[in-house]
Amino acid sequence: MNLVQINDDPSQFAARIPDLDLPVRRIFPLARLLDAMRSNEMALVAPQLWDDPREDPTVLCMLDGTNLVQNKGQRQLADYLAPAWAQCWSLNPGSDTLLRAYSRVRLDPQSRRNTDRLDEGVTVTTTVRRLLAAGEGWHADGADGHIVVGRVEYLEDQEISQRIVNACNGEQGPRFFCTVQGRANSLLWKRDYFGHEQEVRLLLIGRSWRQDKPSPTLRRLRIDPNSLFTSISFDPRLVDFEAIEREAEFREAGYTGEVTRDLSYQKTLSLLMMTRDWPDP
């Protein structure tokens, strides 16, 4: 494997995704997606802002050389890590678990409107190929980072720790994580506790950084929503009239793509064809 150094020319690639045309999905907060449509910008955030405190496991590691070289002491592995920003997508075709985790709908008993618009989500679909194509545009703008779209590996805690130990004691030593592949791997190893997410991560890895200066926690990237997104769909628990209103909002914001209807919460009337007579109730 030819390792790309962090300070090399900008690169982009997919990791552990053999089919670049597989659909991936993400549930955006309603207001944030509308902002993305209007501004043609999409935000990636630093892993330390996510709920899971172990999203970036290498940050939590100390190198201990006290038994190896006299006065070697300890050093944090974080000193070798370039700043990174990420956005989470999923190969999961849709589930009630993910829907309820990222979208809130509480219908008012009188108006039948969602009273929790602030936390309402919108499902967006795209493909890894389209994400990488967007990355080419970011590079054309004079990128200061590498783009990686990678499938998360879900592992036991002990396996994640062992992989980090093996890398630090390998040929490259801790500087393995000064390569694009190494830094990407450090953000694609996740506890199997979250395996249901079937996550694919869009990563932006900074090409230069200063240890004495904090990195921004958010990066905004230019996008063309109508090229990047293949479809959007609204929370299936919304009443029809409100879903129609949502679509009108997105059309006004400039979205011209497909709006699909999620029928997960649609009542279905079944007609059972009887082959024998039956008693009255």
Rank of each mutant, 00 (worst) to 15 (best):
D19L: 03
R25M: 11
L63Y: 05
P47G: 12
R54A: 10
D51V: 02
W50R: 11
L63N: 04
V59M: 07
L60R: 11
R32I: 09
F28S: 02
R25P: 00
D21N: 07
L60V: 01
A36K: 03
D19P: 04
P53R: 14
R26M: 11
M62A: 15
L60E: 15
V24A: 06
R54G: 03
M62K: 07
F28W: 14
R32L: 10
R26Y: 10
P53H: 11
D56R: 00
S39P: 01
M42V: 15
G65A: 12
G65V: 04
D35Y: 14
V45T: 13
M42E: 03
T58F: 00
M37K: 02
D19V: 15
G65Y: 14
A43K: 04
R32W: 02
L63E: 00
P57R: 00
P23N: 07
R54K: 09
V45E: 12
P53Q: 11
A36V: 02
R25C: 05
A46V: 01
L22D: 03
D64I: 03
R38L: 13
M42G: 04
P29C: 08
G65L: 14
I27E: 02
A31W: 10
P23Y: 01
R32P: 08
D51K: 12
A46E: 11
R26H: 14
L34V: 15
M37S: 04
A46H: 15
T58S: 06
D21K: 08
D56N: 11
Q48G: 08
S39N: 13
S39L: 05
P57T: 01
D51W: 09
A46T: 10
P23S: 10
A31E: 13
P23V: 03
M62L: 15
P29Q: 05
T58K: 00
R38N: 07
L60N: 15
D64P: 14
D56H: 12
P23T: 03
W50P: 00
M37C: 06
P29M: 05
A31P: 01
M62R: 06
R25L: 11
D21Y: 04
M62N: 09
W50Y: 14
L44Q: 10
A43Q: 06
G65T: 03
M62F: 11
T66G: 14
N40A: 06
V24L: 07
L44N: 10
R38Y: 07
L34T: 06
E55R: 09
P29N: 09
R26E: 01
P53G: 05
M62T: 15
V45A: 13
D19M: 07
I27H: 01
N40C: 02
M62D: 13
A36W: 04
L22R: 12
E55W: 09
D52Q: 13
Q48T: 06
R54C: 04
G65Q: 07
V45F: 12
M37P: 00
A36R: 04
W50Q: 08
S39H: 03
W50L: 15
D52F: 10
E55G: 07
N40F: 00
F28K: 01
G65S: 08
A31N: 13
L34H: 02
W50K: 02
G65D: 11
E55Y: 09
L20G: 05
R26C: 04
P53A: 15
C61A: 13
C61L: 10
Q48F: 13
F28L: 03
V59I: 11
F28D: 03
L44M: 14
P29D: 14
F28E: 10
M37I: 15
V59H: 13
E55F: 07
L30V: 08
C61P: 00
